[in-house]
Design a protein around this nucleic acid. Structure first.
Length: 405
DNA sequence: CCTTCCCGCCAGACA
DNA sequence: TGTCTGGCGGGAAGG
């Protein structure tokens, strides 16, 4: 009988979890701000809204089998952010080859396998452009091509294909508005930023220096540099969330700088072909797949039930087919960026441990109290716990066991 | 106080 | 004219 009760509790427990899964999966809850019902108590936390975390969530959401195209609206609603933020993410991801623009509102998922080739292409371009920049002021053939591209009618290229407008800013000559806008785009800035690492000896660079380098000589004033640095922060956050780069400090000046990790710090052919949600693509209890809508001006002192919407990510040990970008460290696994989930399993978790986790699932109800994002669910779970305690002390008459607390 | 970077306004591009 | 796209800088959080 006792076991029967326990079984019922486990079932109820699972139902609550299932309910939460469904609840969180409904886009309209995010879009309509219904999730905010609980967020009024939640203090604003900048890190929970960061582009890096959003990028991690984005990749976790779409990096799986069967994903071919991605709708921006879908991404925005599922991640619980405005579309504007999705544009920032996809522009950077597109620059490193993970995504490709397919149509309005629609991107093709290329995956991590496309990264090495993209980086190699960027490197080639960068080296070519360096020659251009050193010897002439954009009068070489390649520069002409790029300049033509930059100057070409935007009808042809800007909305459907922007892959070739990669020249570094110093190579551009005209100031026409469309070109100017393109020249300042986040995607182009990302590519040029990556080229700085790929095509120079610099192992480490501050964003301030990067901004100055990426700005044309005639444009380096404090205002434009500041603007550029802002964008570079955005880019750096996304790139470091994928472990392309890592934040560090310059050994001499102690100023913040970023170090290139490249494919050493991210999944490549030696390591993985995808990042997947842990627990067999399931979220762990109480985690949130969204950057839920908590405005920064909403501040509340009580953070006791605030949950980190980290996405646990682990590695699928399959190889890629690409030849470039092999890591120097061989079978090193993916490492998390600065937004790594606290509860994530370390890479290299043994098969035994994984199996044990599955088995532990069975005893979860008696050993683990989930942290529900949603207050109503949390209350409901508390209710079950209290009911269980009450029943147990009453029927079993045992008070020497402390349950679930 | 300085660094970091989220947020959303608004203008350009496009259908 | 409406929608999509994304540059931009204010200003608040974080250190």
């Amino acid at each position: 009988m006792c076991f029967g009760r326990i079984y019922i509790c486990v079932i109820a427990y699972r139902l609550i979890y299932l309910f939460e899964e469904i609840y969180m999966a409904l886009p309209e809850f995010h879009a309509a701000g219904a999730i905010d019902s609980g967020s009024k108590d939640v203090p604003y936390c900048r890190k929970q809204k960061s582009l890096g975390l959003l990028c991690s969530n984005f990749l976790s959401l779409y990096n799986r089998d069967g994903i071919e195209t991605i709708g921006l609206d879908d991404a925005a609603s599922r991640l619980g952010v405005e579309r504007r933020r999705i544009y920032d993410i996809v522009n950077v991801l597109e620059s490193v080859g993970i995504l490709a623009r397919k149509a309005k509102n629609r991107y093709t998922w290329k995956g991590y396998g496309a990264i090495p080739k993209t980086l190699e292409d960027l490197k080639k371009e960068g080296l070519k452009e360096n020659g251009c920049a050193v010897e002439t002021s954009c009068s070489e053939k390649t520069s002409d091509d790029e300049d033509d591209e930059m100057c070409s009618d935007l009808n042809n290229s800007s909305q459907t294909e922007k892959s070739d407008s990669n020249s570094v800013p110093k190579c551009s000559l005209s100031n026409r508005s469309g070109e100017n806008r393109k020249e300042k785009s986040l995607g182009l800035l990302t590519r040029n930023f990556v080229k700085l690492f790929l095509c120079t000896d610099m192992d480490m660079i501050s964003l301030d220096d990067a901004a100055k380098l990426l700005l044309g000589d005639g444009k380096r004033n404090s205002v434009t540099t500041r603007t550029k640095v802002r964008r570079l922060y955005d880019i750096a956050n996304v790139l470091s969330s994928m472990n392309f780069i890592e934040k560090t400090h310059h050994p001499l000046t102690r100023k913040p700088a970023f170090r290139w990790l490249g494919l050493n710090g991210k999944p490549d052919k030696e390591n993985v072909d995808s990042l997947v949600l842990s627990e067999s693509k399931k979220r762990v209890f109480g985690t949130d797949l969204t950057n839920a809508t908590i405005k920064r001006f909403k501040v509340d002192g009580d953070a006791s039930h605030f949950l980190k919407p980290h996405i646990p990510i682990q590695i699928k040990q399959e190889n890629l087919d690409n030849d470039v970008g092999r890591t120097k460290t061989g079978g090193k696994n993916y490492q998390f960026g600065p937004f790594a989930p606290a509860n994530v399993h370390k890479v290299g978790t043994s098969q035994d441990e994984k199996e044990k986790q599955v088995i532990d699932w069975e005893s979860l109800a008696s050993t683990y109290r989930p942290q529900y994002h949603n207050q109503a669910l949390k209350d409901m779970f508390s209710h079950y716990v209290e009911a269980w305690k009450s029943w147990y002390s009453e029927v079993a008459g045992k008070n020497h066991i402390q349950l679930l607390s």
